[in-house]
């Protein structure tokens, strides 16, 4: 069967869309880190424990797999970060403040950051519900943090996020370096601290991740993943870029994985000029030194 050609009007509309989409992601000219820093490495932990498994109505084994992250994994991985003196950001659903308050208080005491990760790992289409969830989550997190929450990892509406004081999101991989992103109407710019799925632990280690079928499963061993992550880091290090490792306490809190992440950090530290800030620390540097150019 022949594929029909789009009409000239439809083609023009596609061209206009492509042009608009390109303008939505604004790279930062002459991007620079603080003096002496060659690149920043963010370790970001999505502390969602069993919430997504529960949302999808999965059996108890699945929920318990997530529960490991809250009662064992998060403690263990945070102890390792503290031993390495690396500050991290935990993107945390509001409900976790009720399930695991003690570890969150310990995390704040040790100088780490809490960011928003939805109420129960879901953004609802109804704007009233979305607002209520975001408000409730920010309130719960900032009560523990003892100060405002400035970041999110979510598909929350950018305009709503800005109205609540959220200044950055870490939810896209459109560029290697941090950049500003406009919403679908070309408004409400928000700073994006990009992650990449190649640096997401769950992709390598979690069975059936993102609904992949059984025949597609490759439960990886830690050494394979260490090599992939080291290569990704090295490439960005040479380029003076940015690295954001996305970890889940229920995945990377397992003993063998805490060990490879520690090994990775120790190897990274052998190179000069690597900065391990929280996402908020990095965001404040960018907002201060590289605000969005006016003429957009």
């Amino acid at each position: 069967m022949m594929t029909s050609q789009p009409s000239p009007d439809a083609f023009d509309a596609l061209v206009r869309t492509a042009q608009f989409q390109r303008t939505r992601r604004i790279q930062i000219p002459d991007f620079a880190y603080p003096e002496g820093v060659k690149l920043a490495v963010n370790f970001t932990l999505d502390f969602d424990a069993m919430l997504l498994r529960r949302l999808l109505n999965e059996p108890w084994g699945q929920k318990a797999k997530g529960e490991f992250g809250g009662r064992v994994g998060v403690w263990r991985i945070m102890e390792m970060f503290d031993a390495e003196d690396v500050k991290v950001t935990l993107f945390t659903p509001g409900r976790i403040c009720e399930l695991y308050p003690e570890v969150l208080r310990a995390v704040i005491q040790n100088g780490h950051e809490l960011g928003n990760h939805m109420w129960e790992h879901e953004v609802y289409a109804d704007p009233v519900i979305e607002d209520a969830h975001l408000t409730r989550t920010l309130k719960a997190l900032s009560a523990i943090q003892g100060g405002p929450v400035t970041g999110t990892r979510s598909s929350h509406t950018p305009g709503l996020l800005r109205s609540k004081g959220v200044v950055y999101n870490s939810f896209t991989s459109a560029h290697d370096l941090p950049f500003y992103e406009l919403d679908a109407q070309g408004e409400n710019p928000i700073l994006q601290l990009p992650f990449h799925y190649a640096l997401d632990d769950a992709m390598y280690f979690s069975f059936g991740w993102l609904d992949t079928p059984n025949a597609a499963q490759r439960v990886m061993d830690v050494d394979e993943v260490f090599d992939i992550w080291w290569a990704a880091f090295e490439q960005q290090y040479k380029a003076g870029g940015y690295v954001n490792f996305l970890l889940h306490p229920f995945v990377s809190g397992h003993a063998m994985r805490v060990d490879i992440i520690q090994r990775l950090i120790q190897r990274i530290k052998t190179l000069p000029g690597v900065w391990f800030p929280t996402c908020d620390t990095l965001a404040q540097h960018i907002l201060t030194h590289h605000p969005l150019p006016e003429a957009q």
Binding site: Q217, R218, V219, D221, M256
Partner: peptide, 26 residues
């Protein structure tokens, strides 16, 4: 032999590496 023998994956090295890494850590 995952998920089925004949059509499946044979990855003994990954299994052994996981056992060893976890054993060391634990």
């Amino acid at each position: 032999m995952f998920p089925r023998e004949g059509i499946g994956l044979e990855r003994p090295q990954a299994l052994l590496s996981n056992w060893r890494a976890e054993f060391r850590a634990q």
